[in-house]
Protein backbone atom coordinates (compact mmCIF):
# COMPACT_ATOMS: atom_id res chain seq x y z
CA UNK A 1 0.00 0.00 0.00
CA UNK A 2 1.30 3.43 -0.86
CA UNK A 3 1.51 6.25 1.62
CA UNK A 4 -1.18 8.12 -0.34
CA UNK A 5 -3.55 5.21 0.35
CA UNK A 6 -2.64 5.39 4.01
CA UNK A 7 -3.37 9.11 4.09
CA UNK A 8 -6.76 8.60 2.47
CA UNK A 9 -7.50 5.84 4.94
CA UNK A 10 -6.41 8.06 7.81
CA UNK A 11 -8.82 10.76 6.69
CA UNK A 12 -11.72 8.33 6.78
CA UNK A 13 -10.90 7.20 10.31
CA UNK A 14 -10.59 10.82 11.49
CA UNK A 15 -14.13 11.38 10.24
CA UNK A 16 -15.29 8.37 12.22
CA UNK A 17 -13.58 9.77 15.32
CA UNK A 18 -15.22 13.16 14.73
CA UNK A 19 -18.55 11.38 14.38
CA UNK A 20 -18.09 9.74 17.77
CA UNK A 21 -17.23 13.13 19.30
CA UNK A 22 -20.62 14.34 18.07
CA UNK A 23 -22.20 11.10 19.26
CA UNK A 24 -21.04 11.93 22.80
CA UNK A 25 -23.22 15.04 22.68
CA UNK A 26 -26.05 13.22 20.93
CA UNK A 27 -26.17 10.81 23.87
CA UNK A 28 -27.99 13.47 25.90
CA UNK A 29 -31.15 13.57 23.75
CA UNK A 30 -30.80 9.83 23.11
CA UNK A 31 -30.83 9.02 26.82
CA UNK A 32 -33.80 11.31 27.33
CA UNK A 33 -35.72 9.53 24.58
CA UNK A 34 -34.76 6.14 26.04
CA UNK A 35 -35.92 7.27 29.48
CA UNK A 36 -39.33 8.37 28.33
CA UNK A 37 -40.13 5.76 25.73
CA UNK A 38 -38.29 2.63 26.83
CA UNK A 39 -37.99 2.91 30.59
CA UNK A 40 -41.14 4.96 31.21
CA UNK A 41 -39.64 7.76 33.30
CA UNK A 42 -41.22 11.16 32.82
CA UNK A 43 -38.59 13.86 32.45
CA UNK A 44 -40.92 16.56 31.12
CA UNK A 45 -41.73 18.72 34.14
CA UNK A 46 -44.32 20.99 32.54
CA UNK A 47 -47.74 21.65 34.02
CA UNK A 48 -50.74 19.45 33.38
CA UNK A 49 -53.75 21.22 31.89
CA UNK A 50 -55.98 22.24 34.83
CA UNK A 51 -59.19 21.38 32.99
CA UNK A 52 -57.90 17.95 32.12
CA UNK A 53 -57.02 17.48 35.77
CA UNK A 54 -60.51 18.51 36.88
CA UNK A 55 -62.06 16.13 34.37
CA UNK A 56 -60.21 13.09 35.74
CA UNK A 57 -62.55 10.65 37.46
CA UNK A 58 -61.75 10.20 41.12
CA UNK A 59 -61.08 6.66 42.31
CA UNK A 60 -62.72 6.81 45.77
CA UNK A 61 -61.94 3.15 46.44
CA UNK A 62 -58.20 3.67 46.62
CA UNK A 63 -55.89 5.67 48.87
CA UNK A 64 -52.32 6.42 47.94
CA UNK A 65 -49.78 7.83 50.36
CA UNK A 66 -47.79 10.78 49.04
CA UNK A 67 -44.66 11.79 50.96
CA UNK A 68 -42.91 15.12 50.61
CA UNK A 69 -39.20 15.74 50.96
CA UNK A 70 -37.66 19.19 50.83
CA UNK A 71 -33.90 19.71 50.71
CA UNK A 72 -31.47 22.38 49.62
CA UNK A 73 -27.99 21.99 48.22
CA UNK A 74 -25.49 22.78 50.96
CA UNK A 75 -24.26 25.86 49.09
CA UNK A 76 -27.70 27.52 49.02
CA UNK A 77 -28.32 29.51 52.25
CA UNK A 78 -32.06 28.89 52.29
CA UNK A 79 -34.28 27.08 54.75
CA UNK A 80 -36.76 24.96 52.88
CA UNK A 81 -39.35 22.61 54.30
CA UNK A 82 -42.64 20.88 53.55
CA UNK A 83 -45.63 21.88 55.69
CA UNK A 84 -47.11 18.40 55.43
CA UNK A 85 -44.86 15.39 55.40
CA UNK A 86 -47.39 12.81 54.22
CA UNK A 87 -50.87 12.96 52.68
CA UNK A 88 -53.31 10.23 51.80
CA UNK A 89 -54.97 11.03 48.49
CA UNK A 90 -57.52 9.45 46.16
CA UNK A 91 -56.19 8.94 42.64
CA UNK A 92 -57.84 11.42 40.29
CA UNK A 93 -58.51 14.04 42.95
CA UNK A 94 -56.83 17.43 42.85
CA UNK A 95 -54.65 17.97 45.93
CA UNK A 96 -52.63 20.80 47.33
CA UNK A 97 -49.44 20.80 49.41
CA UNK A 98 -47.52 23.79 50.73
CA UNK A 99 -43.81 24.40 51.07
CA UNK A 100 -41.93 27.19 52.87
CA UNK A 101 -38.64 28.71 51.82
CA UNK A 102 -36.64 31.39 53.64
CA UNK A 103 -33.55 33.14 52.39
CA UNK A 104 -31.38 33.35 55.52
CA UNK A 105 -28.51 35.13 53.78
CA UNK A 106 -27.73 38.81 53.33
CA UNK A 107 -28.12 38.79 49.56
CA UNK A 108 -30.88 38.27 47.01
CA UNK A 109 -30.76 34.81 45.48
CA UNK A 110 -32.58 33.14 42.62
CA UNK A 111 -33.19 29.43 43.17
CA UNK A 112 -34.64 26.62 41.12
CA UNK A 113 -36.39 23.65 42.67
CA UNK A 114 -35.69 20.32 40.96
CA UNK A 115 -38.50 17.82 41.46
CA UNK A 116 -38.12 14.08 41.53
CA UNK A 117 -40.67 11.30 42.00
CA UNK A 118 -39.83 7.95 43.53
CA UNK A 119 -40.27 5.17 42.58
CA UNK A 120 -39.35 6.52 39.18
CA UNK A 121 -41.74 4.20 37.35
CA UNK A 122 -44.53 6.13 39.09
CA UNK A 123 -43.35 9.45 37.67
CA UNK A 124 -45.56 8.88 34.61
CA UNK A 125 -48.64 8.95 36.85
CA UNK A 126 -47.84 12.01 38.93
CA UNK A 127 -49.14 15.19 37.34
CA UNK A 128 -48.68 18.70 38.67
CA UNK A 129 -51.10 21.44 37.61
CA UNK A 130 -49.21 24.12 39.46
CA UNK A 131 -45.78 24.13 41.00
CA UNK A 132 -43.17 26.57 42.25
CA UNK A 133 -40.68 24.39 40.43
CA UNK A 134 -41.95 25.56 37.04
CA UNK A 135 -40.33 28.97 37.46
CA UNK A 136 -37.30 30.59 39.01
CA UNK A 137 -37.87 31.73 42.58
CA UNK A 138 -36.34 35.02 43.66
CA UNK A 139 -36.02 35.43 47.42
CA UNK A 140 -34.68 38.75 48.64
CA UNK A 141 -32.37 38.72 51.67
CA UNK A 142 -34.41 37.46 54.65
CA UNK A 143 -37.57 36.94 52.63
CA UNK A 144 -39.90 34.00 53.31
CA UNK A 145 -42.35 32.57 50.82
CA UNK A 146 -45.12 30.00 51.11
CA UNK A 147 -45.44 28.06 47.85
CA UNK A 148 -48.09 25.60 46.69
CA UNK A 149 -48.00 22.47 44.61
CA UNK A 150 -51.25 21.22 43.11
CA UNK A 151 -51.21 17.70 41.79
CA UNK A 152 -53.29 14.79 40.60
CA UNK A 153 -52.28 11.16 40.90
CA UNK A 154 -53.34 9.39 37.73
CA UNK A 155 -55.91 6.64 38.51
CA UNK A 156 -53.96 4.36 36.15
CA UNK A 157 -51.16 4.23 38.74
CA UNK A 158 -50.13 0.54 38.94
CA UNK A 159 -51.93 -1.28 41.76
CA UNK A 160 -48.73 -2.38 43.48
CA UNK A 161 -47.66 1.22 44.05
CA UNK A 162 -49.14 2.52 47.29
CA UNK A 163 -46.60 5.15 48.25
CA UNK A 164 -45.11 7.95 46.19
CA UNK A 165 -42.36 10.30 47.28
CA UNK A 166 -42.17 13.77 45.81
CA UNK A 167 -38.84 15.35 46.57
CA UNK A 168 -37.66 18.88 45.83
CA UNK A 169 -34.10 20.04 45.92
CA UNK A 170 -33.50 23.78 45.77
CA UNK A 171 -30.34 24.82 43.96
CA UNK A 172 -28.94 28.26 43.44
CA UNK A 173 -29.40 29.48 39.90
CA UNK A 174 -26.01 31.14 39.75
CA UNK A 175 -26.55 32.69 36.34
CA UNK A 176 -29.85 34.37 37.27
CA UNK A 177 -28.51 35.43 40.67
CA UNK A 178 -25.54 37.10 39.04
CA UNK A 179 -27.74 38.82 36.48
CA UNK A 180 -29.95 40.06 39.33
CA UNK A 181 -26.98 41.43 41.28
CA UNK A 182 -25.75 43.23 38.17
CA UNK A 183 -29.13 44.81 37.40
CA UNK A 184 -29.46 45.88 41.06
CA UNK A 185 -26.09 47.57 40.87
CA UNK A 186 -27.03 49.25 37.60
CA UNK A 187 -30.34 50.41 39.09
CA UNK A 188 -28.86 51.70 42.35
CA UNK A 189 -27.16 54.91 41.08
CA UNK A 190 -30.26 55.85 39.03
CA UNK A 191 -32.60 55.72 42.04
Amino acid sequence: MSSADNRRFQKKVWWIAAGFFGFGFALIPLYNIACEHVLGIKLEQGAMDAQAAAATTVDESRLVTVQFVATTKSKLPWQFSAETVTMKVHPGALNEAWFDATNVSERDIVGNAIPSVAPNEASLYFNKTECFCFTEQLLKAGETRRMPVRFVVDPRLPKETNTLTLSYTFLENTVATKRLAESNQAAAPAS
Binding site: I16, A17, G19, F20, F21, F23, G24, F25, L27, V175
Partner: peptide
Protein backbone atom coordinates in the same frame (compact mmCIF):
# COMPACT_ATOMS: atom_id res chain seq x y z
CA UNK B 1 -10.25 3.59 20.96
CA UNK B 2 -11.60 5.30 17.85
CA UNK B 3 -15.14 4.82 19.12
CA UNK B 4 -14.79 5.89 22.73
CA UNK B 5 -11.92 8.34 23.18
CA UNK B 6 -13.94 11.01 21.30
CA UNK B 7 -16.89 10.34 23.61
CA UNK B 8 -14.64 11.00 26.62
CA UNK B 9 -13.43 14.15 24.90
CA UNK B 10 -17.07 15.20 24.46
CA UNK B 11 -17.89 14.47 28.10
CA UNK B 12 -14.97 16.50 29.47
CA UNK B 13 -15.73 19.29 27.00
CA UNK B 14 -19.21 19.47 28.49
CA UNK B 15 -17.66 19.65 31.98
CA UNK B 16 -15.43 22.45 30.77
CA UNK B 17 -18.28 24.51 29.31
CA UNK B 18 -20.41 23.84 32.40
CA UNK B 19 -17.71 25.25 34.63
CA UNK B 20 -16.38 28.12 32.56
CA UNK B 21 -18.93 29.01 29.87
CA UNK B 22 -22.26 28.87 31.66
Amino acid sequence: LIAVMPVLAGAVTMLLTDKFFG
